[in-house]
Design a protein around this nucleic acid. Sequence first.
DNA 1: ATAAAAAATGTGTTCGAACACATTGATATT
DNA 2: AATATCAATGTGTTCGAACACATTTTTTAT
Lengths: 347, 347
Amino acid sequence: MKKYTIKDIAELAGVSKGTVDRVIHKRGKVSPAALEKVTKLLEEIDYQPNLIARSLKNTKNYHICVIQPDPKIDPYWQPCTNGVNDAINEYNSFGITIDSYYFDHTDTRSFLEVNKTVLKQLPDAVLITPVFHKESIEVIKIYNANNIIVSTINDPLELNGITNYVGQDLIQSGRIAARLMEMIVPKNRTILIIHLDEVFNNSIHMQLKEKGFKNYLERLPNSKFNLKTCSLQQTDLDKKLHDLLKKPNDISGIFVTTSKVYSVANIVKDFPDLEIKIIGYDLLDENIKYLKNNAIDFLINQNPKHQAYLCITQLAEYFLFDKKIPRQKLLPIDIINSENFDGYTHN
Amino acid sequence: MKKYTIKDIAELAGVSKGTVDRVIHKRGKVSPAALEKVTKLLEEIDYQPNLIARSLKNTKNYHICVIQPDPKIDPYWQPCTNGVNDAINEYNSFGITIDSYYFDHTDTRSFLEVNKTVLKQLPDAVLITPVFHKESIEVIKIYNANNIIVSTINDPLELNGITNYVGQDLIQSGRIAARLMEMIVPKNRTILIIHLDEVFNNSIHMQLKEKGFKNYLERLPNSKFNLKTCSLQQTDLDKKLHDLLKKPNDISGIFVTTSKVYSVANIVKDFPDLEIKIIGYDLLDENIKYLKNNAIDFLINQNPKHQAYLCITQLAEYFLFDKKIPRQKLLPIDIINSENFDGYTHN
DNA sequence: ATAAAAAATGTGTTCGAACACATTGATATT
DNA sequence: AATATCAATGTGTTCGAACACATTTTTTAT
């Protein structure tokens, strides 16, 4: 399978490469005869331009800014940083510069400030992690007005003004947890749904997961479980959960909608007789510790690292090779137990 | 962050680009003074060559041949074909040609014949799926003698003469199934391990999975399950399994070490009272059908599509951008249930 | 001191696509 | 018929790295 170049086609058609070029790019100024001859040849041969040569010609330094919560403040975001760093290394030699900016995920002002700094740089694209729903919508408008591509991970917002979103189907994510619970918790018992975060968070993550979770369990042929929801701050957790478990109860499962599931497991381990099954999110070291000794039964992997990496990959390949950016990319939702976590943490 | 080119560095060092080039490629014929000046500058600036320009210069049509079982004969291999096709589309415009060759996975001669055909082409690399252990080792030797890169997926062989292997840790894969069984099967019951294939297969897949499965369950603090192994041909299955289940028994779990798990589920569904849990491999349409209505409880995804795709990606990036090929790449082992299969089949 | 040999350095071309610019040929205008 | 106008086509340069080849400088031998 020979690779045809513009020059080859020019020779075959008996015209110059300039003419072939004009046909390919529909720049006009080509006689009908030449147009037809070249077009036909291009089709026959199924001409595919050499993307490497094209990319070399359009050499330009593209600039992507990544805006994410500071992993030093919340370690949940560390994998995200790692994914970005992988992308930095991968595309550095291709003329794509990626800068990371961190904000305090407990402070909307710091988010807005960082965005102001980034805007001054006028990058070609930004990747923002929209933990602040309202504020994110604000800044996205500004980026759009400045013709800066906006990508997001983790939270789909409304997809307005966003070029691409890489994330997961959060409702489905809840359903997965529910199906697992169904398999490992005896029927007719109580299952607790715990929303747990350090701060109040104006994102809709947790609600969607709860929705999917309930939706699955409530529609079982003979509704078998008793579901209870509690929203807790990290600080309240200890006392409230202890109180709940000390009293006589039939709680046999807990679904934690965030990555803070380790702190739940840490309390539940004081009540081994209850044989409570726990399912939560994300492969934090703390979580894996409990997963290993079966104190946590399943983790659902949101794969923030891959989300970040993939998102940047898509931007880079768009800049370099003009690949289309899919408006929305839903990653598979990984079920993790004590035996398969290894393959996911090393990725 | 400006991108420095060889020309930039030449100017900064007050030498010609030829000299810089000689320093970079350690071709010698450079005075100690110039050598030091340029080397220092290269380090200071952290010079990264533009891989696109480099790749354009070394323009060559690389040729990869893929040798795999015919998906028309065994649909298990269809995803593999799909992964290869994705890679074909992706790298076609980069001067990498990929040809697929199919053999009959029940016939070693067809495997050897296909390899003969491929060898005549003298490709730059071959990707073989070694279902025939012994014969594969033979052909690999020949490829090595001809300086053809050999990649494999699915079966690690002994890794002799193989440049890269993309697959999974099969022992761990068995352990994962075991942990899942432990969670969903009542204690002290019997669990069946079924090796099921259309033909005898001289690969070691199934043995490794069984090993991991047993290893996990036998080392539980208080050994709780009664394990039984049977090796069956597809043709015997129906009668033998029926006989087994008709007699009084306490079988509560079946672990099928291949993708033919649907045929087991099809028989087990006639014995609903036994409440047998089933775990098997791979996202065949047939399997997913049973997974959806909970006749199969878990599937383990070997991800043949991604294995094939990734393997070719690695070869391509080696040819194009001189990236190192990892000798062994173990993919994560996905746990699939009725709620998350969707994300994996659409990938 | 001069020629020859060797070492060091510089120059020019190539890869394929893209595009600016130059040239040719045909038609219209005076 | 001579010149201007415009469409059609061709030519040449650029991107950055790689390498062949040409030129300059230094060293060695006579």
